[in-house]
Every structure is written in C-alpha cells, then in structure tokens.
Design a protein around this nucleic acid. Structure first.
Length: 554
RNA sequence: AGACCCAUGGUGUAAUUGGCAACACAACAGAUUUUGGUUCUGUCGUUCAAGGUUCGAGUCCUUGUGGGUCUACCA
C-alpha cells in the first residue's frame, strides 16, 4: 500500500497525511524520542516511544533517539544505557547513533549569538526572584527588566564573558526579548541560558553556561531536521516559544504536535515518586516487579509485544485518559495464551492419596505443552499413588451440582491422568485438612478412557515424590486505589497495598526445576508466571505475571 | 482572573470529514471445553446542556456547564 492510500488512525496521522499530500519536506517523515537521562523509563514513556516509532514506521519514516541532557546537575550516563536497552527490549531500533542535546552545545551557543545580534535576546542580571516578579501573573501583565534595552554589542560582550566563566552561578542569564505582557507567560522574556559551573556527564568542564529546555529541545529538533516533534499535552504552551525561536533563528521548521499522556490504573509514573518507593525500601529496586518501569514490567513477565499492543490500541488523543488495568492484563494474557507452555504447579498443596493405586508404582503420562499451539509438542509427567492438589479445590462437605471440584462423593478428572472418586479426608486437631483420600478408575486414563464415568471438573496436580519446591512471588497492585495521586487530602503513600507481595512455596512438576530466567509459562488453572533472575540452580524463583480469568463464583 | 486544550456506553477509542453511532475491554446470559482458561453467540449508549445553520449535525456556529494545562535559572 502506498502512503497515499493509508488511512489516518488518529489526529497526528491526519496531519502527516496532509503534509504528505502537500509534499511538505519532500514527503519525508522523521520523529524522535527525547528522554532526559535522569531516571528509568516507565509505562508512560512506552506510550511515547510506541507513538513515535510506529508513526514513523507507518509512513516509511525514521525515528531518532536523543538524550535531552542540558542539565548537568541531574543527568547521569548510567541512565543512558538503561534507556537504550529498554527501548530495544520494547522492540525498536532508532536511526543512526544515539543523539545528545549536549552534542549541539556549540550550535546552540551560535544560535544565541544570532539572537543577540538581531536584538532578540539580552543578558539580564536580575535575580531569580526579580525575574519571577517581573513575570506578572496569570491575567496580569509583567514589567520589563531594567536591562532589557542593552545594545546588541553590549549583550554580545556580556554573553561571551558568561561563556568564558567570568561570572558566578546565578549572576546573569540570557533572555529572549519578546513581550512582557504576552498572555502566554512562557513568552514573557523567557530565560534561555543560565550559568552553572558544573561538570556535564558528556562535555565535562567545557561549558559553564547551559541552555534551558526551550532553547535546546526545539533547536535540536531543527538540527536533526525532525519533521514531526511529538510530545505530551503539557508542552502546548511551549509550542508558541518553539515556533517563535524557529522564526527568529530562521532554522528548519520542525512541527510540534502534542498528544495526551497515558495513565494506567494502579500505576504511578512520576519519576520523583518512583524514586521515593525505591529509596524508602518499599520496593526492592527500579526493576521490582510491582514497579511501572519497563524494567519492572519485564521482570514481572509482561511481554514487550503486549505492551506495544496496549499502547497502540489505546489510541492517540488530546484528552487525558485513564486506562484500566483490565485492558493491559488482557493484552498480556492474549500474548501469553498463545506463547506460554503449560505446566502444573500446586500453589497451596495438600496431599492426596489414591488408595487403590498400587504402592511403589510410577507411570509416565503424556500431556500437551500448549493446546493453542500443537507445534509445541508434548512432555511426560510422572504419576503415582501420592500427589498434591490445591487446598482450595477441596470441600469437606458434599457440594451442589454447580460445584465441579473435590468433595466427598465427587468424581473429578486429574488433568492428563485419571478420574478419581473422592472418599473423604483426614484432619488435625484444628480441623485443617491434612490428607484427602480418593480411589481412581483404572480404565479412565486420559486419551483411552473407557470408564464411562463423567467428571465435570478437571484439576491440576503434582506427583508428590518427584515434586520440586518453587519460590513463587505473588503480586497484587502496589496501591489499593487505582489513582493514588488524585487525592488532594491524602498522600499516595497512604494507599500502599500491604499485600502487594506474598511469597509462597509451591510444589511443581520436575520440568520446572530448569526454567530459564525470563521464560514465561502458564501454571494450569492458576495464571502466567515467569522465571525471576533470583533463581539459583535447583532453586527456582518465579513471579506471577497475571492470573487467569475465572468465571467461577465459588 | 487571562490564554490555550478537551467533552461519544461502566472504561478506552471509531465514525468514509455533514448522511442509518462502530470496535475493544469490563459486566451479565448462553454454547463448546480433559485449564470454571481459550474460542463462539447474545444483552447493555442516540454523542455534556441550551439555542442556531441545514433536507439532514457526534461532526459546523453561539452561549453555557464540567474537566485539564500554564506564572522553575527542571525537562
């Protein structure tokens, strides 16, 4: 399909289609993802990444990765590596080398001089507090700085001396000369450069003046000849300045388009607060499986494909959205149902004895690895007189017709094995079930059942003598409220879920002893799980990715 | 208070740009099932309000109402 025949899926693509039709930029589409390397990428960034890369891909364009590193005090090289690997994990490769706004410091400096020479920028020694009060207020015009009308020559001299390091931090700034009465506060002579005698993670001690976001981001877009600069809604007001600078500087006219950020129930996406969770020890790190970071979601077992699908299917709009966890989890199950092999593990084991099965006998039973994908083949399971089943799959009293599990006098199918008849149980002094007793129908073996016995329910089980212990980390959302940040009177920490992590020891079939880190599988009837990096030889550790849906109201 | 942005089922998005409101998730009901999973079927809205333009408005205009953003030498 040629790009001319493509249909717009959202308002950004409509703009692109129009630009393409008008032959703008020779039909070239170039986007960029511009993270600040001062933290880990989270689910919100995933949305921006997907929009930028997928939009460009759809129209045969390219996407740059650019570190927005104009503030030497907050940015670190450590984050650069994590950002790059997270983007690759999500499934995207950017055009050429990773770019850095700091690579353009020389250009930016020249741009500043150009503005000064045109009489569109001036050096101001007003203090931060003075500049703030000059700003005026919403609906109230500001006042001109007393230094606003210096000559270009004087400004140039002062700015060059700023760059040369003659002045201390905070003593002077470079400001654009626009309009102190502008309704958009951002255009009331915004600060373009500040003095910071600080080493930068890439340029070292080369600079003691650093550009601010508004004098770096748009200019970097222009230098890279980005055609469509996609960003989130809160930058709407910056667009006026973005465009003013393009005109004043007479540089490549990138176009900024804003879309709404994506919020997801039970997830927070504030770098500061995410860091707080780590620093306070509420989670084990940035990659804790309860975190909204890509590192956390990956560790929890969320497939990159599911995250991509989620970001794409939730659309691109200009209105704030609050996505449900339901949809994200649906996307995760959708991928895992197709890809994850099935295994049996009992999370809350209770011993079940098949009293008429020969003692000391073990037989091997065949079972399919993935009913959704025959190519995954089969494997063998050991079966004997003593097995483990889920405690919750047993009721002490006989149950009604709608109950398909174990209870006295009930018949139940053991997955890929036999149908058993429940006789009853044994219990301790406190009434806890210590053992379930059953008999089996020898002629009901899976695949060759001639018993004629009908069992409505099928249970998962694990052969007791060969069971392996598995550490299972069961997760719930980190917060008890879907939008913990939306309470004016309460702190988000008030909503921490005390049950967000529960560690249990499960009994698993032998094959589970050798799972590889990051491998996902389904524990039959329970959910999807993935092998955690904390696993050690013979001591598997597994994370709950997402539970299976259940329509049973037991 | 000024400027700007937004408003479609419980939730999130569509609607050939003015022509019978569609899809997904959730929920509920049923069918299939050796996972109470998967799959399949059905049920659940006249588009924030009022006025206007028009043969015809979710779409255009006006006025409201509600929500959001903006006054860092952060990005």
């Amino acid at each position: 399909m040629s790009t001319a025949e493509k249909k717009a899926d959202n308002f950004i693509e409509e703009i692109i289609l129009e630009d393409l039709a008008n032959g703008k930029h020779g039909g070239r589409i170039h986007t960029r993802f511009p993270p600040e390397p001062n933290g880990y990428l989270h689910i919100g960034h995933a949305k921006a990444i997907v929009i930028n890369f997928e939009t460009a891909k759809k129209f045969g364009g390219k996407t740059n990765l650019r570190m927005d590193d104009t503030n030497p005090s907050t940015e670190e090289t450590l984050y650069v590596d994590n950002i790059q690997s997270d983007i690759r994990w999500l499934g995207y490769e950017w055009e050429g080398d990773t770019r850095y706004a700091s690579d353009y410091f020389d250009h930016l400096y020249q741009f500043a001089l150009r503005l000064i020479d045109k009489g569109l920028a001036y050096v101001d020694e007003s203090s931060a507090a003075e500049i703030e009060s000059q700003k005026g207020d919403i609906g109230v015009p500001g006042t001109n700085s007393p230094h606003r009308d210096r000559s270009p020559a004087e400004n140039r001299d002062l700015f060059e001396r700023m760059r040369a390091g003659e002045f201390p931090d905070g003593s002077k700034v470079l400001r654009a000369k626009i309009d102190m009465a502008h309704p958009n506060l951002l255009l009331r002579d915004p600060v373009l450069y500040r003095i910071k005698h600080e080493a930068h993670h890439r340029t070292g001690e080369n600079w003691c003046i650093y550009p601010l976001y508004d004098f770096a981001h748009g200019q970097s877009d222009s230098l890279e000849e980005i055609t469509h600069s996609l960003c989130s809604l809160e930058f709407r007001h910056h667009r006026d300045l973005y465009n003013w600078l393009i005109e004043a500087l007479e540089i490549f006219p990138s176009r900024q388009i804003e879309f709404a950020r994506m919020n997801v129930d039970y997830f927070i996406t504030s770098k500061r607060r995410l860091k707080l969770l780590v620093d306070e020890g509420i989670v084990t790190g940035w990659d804790d499986a309860r975190m909204s970071t890509l590192a956390g979601l990956r560790r929890k077992g969320y497939p990159a494909e599911a995250i991509r699908n989620f970001c794409m299917d939730t659309g691109v709009t200009r209105r704030d959205s609050q996505q449900t966890l339901d949809l994200l989890e649906y996307k995760v199950r959708e991928v895992l149902n197709r890809d994850a092999d099935r295994y049996m593990a009992v999370l809350d084991p209770v011993r079940l004895v098949i009293t008429n099965y020969p003692e000391g006998q073990t037989e091997m039973l065949e079972t399919e690895n993935n009913p959704e994908n025959e190519e995954r083949g089969t494997r063998e399971l050991p079966f004997s007189r003593e097995i483990y089943v889920e405690r919750e799959d047993y009721r002490k009293e006989p149950q009604n017709r709608k109950y398909f599990r174990l209870a006295p006098e009930k018949d139940v199918r053991l997955k890929s094995a036999y149908i058993i008849h429940c006789e009853g149980h044994e219990e301790d002094a406190d009434g806890n079930v210590t053992q379930i007793n059953c008999t089996y129908y020898p002629d009901s073996r899976s695949g060759e059942d001639t018993s004629g016995v009908k069992a409505k329910g099928t249970l998962h089980w694990v052969n007791a003598p060969t069971a392996v212990d598995i550490e299972v980390r069961m997760y719930e959302p980190l917060f008890t409220d879907p939008t913990p940040m939306d309470h004016e009177d309460r702190d988000f920490m008030d909503f921490l879920n005390p049950n967000s992590l529960q560690v249990i020891t499960a009994k698993g079939e032998p094959a589970l002893a050798e799972g590889k880190v990051g491998e996902s599988f389904q524990f039959l009837r329970k959910g999807y799980f993935t092998v955690d990096p904390d696993s050690r030889e013979g001591k598997p550790v597994v994370n709950l990715t997402v539970g299976l849906k259940s329509s049973w109201k037991g």
